[in-house]
Every structure is written in C-alpha cells, then in structure tokens.
Computed example of a mutant assay.
Amino acid sequence: MRVYTRTGDKGKTSLYDSKRVFKDSARVESYGTIDELNSTLGLAKNFIDDKKMYDLIHNIQRKLFDVAAELATEDKAKLKFQITKEDVKFLENKIDEYLDLIKTPDHFVIPGSGKAAGYMHVSRTICRRAERRIITLAREIDVNEHLLKYINRLSDLIYSLSRYLENEYEEVKFNR
C-alpha cells in the first residue's frame, strides 16, 4: 500500500465510513486535533520515568484511536466502540488519584519545569483545543455526550499529570 492515493488532491478526504468531506470540515478538524494530541502524548511519555504513568498515557493513546474513529464516522452503525460513561469515570478516578499526590492547585504555574512536565502541558493545551473543535462539530451534528465529557476530563487529567511532574514550579501571582 502506498501512502499517497491522490484522492485528496482536490481538498477532500474519506471518513472511516467512506463518506467524502472537505479536509477543513469541523469533523476532520476534530479528529485531526485528537491525532495531534495522541502524537504529543507519545512524545511526552518518553520523558516520564514512572512506569505506571507511562502505561496510563499509553492506554489513553489507545483510547484516543476510539475517540478519533467515532469522530471520523458518520454512520454510527459501523463503529465497533464508542466512548462510555465508564471511560469518563476512569479518568475521574485517575484525576483524583494524582491530585491526592500533590498540593491542591490554587494558582497558575509557569508550565514546564522539566521536559516531561513541559510536554504534558503542551498536550493539555492541545486537548483543550480538541475539545473546542469537538464543540464546534457538536453544533452541526449529534456528538456522543460521553465523548465530550471524556475529552473534558482528559484535559483535567493531563493537567493533573503535568502538575504532578513539575519538579520546581513558579507560582503566577497577579497584582490586584
């Protein structure tokens, strides 16, 4: 199989269920941003020495393929997996687990006291952008409510992991 097909040369791509859409559609922007998130998480995990956290991130990456497939499929009957409330609950449990290990955040911090934390913060911002793109898509089509919650909680988990990874951080104080 070749990487190039020439079928996208006029600005269209195929969804998972073979429907053709423009490459800048809200749907493609949504799953494309999930792909970008998955890639940055892949980079970030390689700077993490904690096997448990590494494995957690790797498993989230696997789940992001389900998220992307769901976003890239118009015909829901062709989906093998959909994001569920159990997936959301899993993230909530992990958020609680990692926040219990750090001082409760009550201020902003300068992101990136180390490479692992820095890359996780980049992933966090991409996750939040993915959520915005999915919300744009949700104004056009019906998006699984659990998928929306999942991405929202995922950004919270990535934030929690980022904070946990911060060795020495600088608090941002505002003059009021």
Rank of each mutant, 00 (worst) to 15 (best):
92 E>A: 13
91 L>F: 00
86 E>T: 13
83 I>K: 14
52 K>R: 05
91 L>G: 10
104 T>Q: 09
64 L>H: 00
98 Y>D: 09
56 L>V: 05
108 F>C: 11
94 K>D: 08
105 P>H: 05
108 F>A: 11
92 E>I: 01
54 Y>D: 10
88 V>P: 01
64 L>P: 00
90 F>G: 03
80 K>M: 10
57 I>Q: 05
84 T>D: 03
102 I>M: 03
55 D>M: 02
96 D>P: 07
83 I>M: 01
104 T>P: 06
52 K>I: 07
79 L>K: 08
102 I>Q: 15
99 L>I: 11
67 V>T: 01
95 I>V: 15
106 D>Y: 08
93 N>I: 09
69 A>C: 14
100 D>T: 08
105 P>Q: 14
109 V>A: 12
95 I>S: 09
104 T>G: 08
91 L>P: 09
104 T>Y: 10
55 D>G: 05
86 E>Y: 11
99 L>G: 10
66 D>E: 08
68 A>I: 05
55 D>C: 03
100 D>A: 08
51 K>E: 15
68 A>F: 00
88 V>Q: 13
107 H>K: 15
72 A>I: 02
81 F>K: 15
87 D>S: 10
56 L>T: 08
101 L>T: 05
81 F>M: 04
85 K>A: 04
101 L>I: 08
62 R>I: 15
84 T>S: 06
96 D>W: 00
82 Q>A: 04
56 L>A: 08
62 R>Q: 15
89 K>N: 13
60 I>C: 04
95 I>A: 03
75 D>L: 06
97 E>M: 01
100 D>S: 15
76 K>L: 05
71 L>R: 14
65 F>I: 12
71 L>Q: 05
75 D>E: 11
75 D>I: 12
87 D>T: 13
89 K>P: 00
68 A>V: 01
51 K>P: 14
53 M>R: 06
86 E>G: 13
104 T>I: 03
100 D>R: 04
93 N>Y: 03
86 E>D: 12
74 E>L: 09
73 T>H: 01
108 F>T: 15
72 A>R: 09
88 V>W: 03
69 A>T: 09
58 H>S: 12
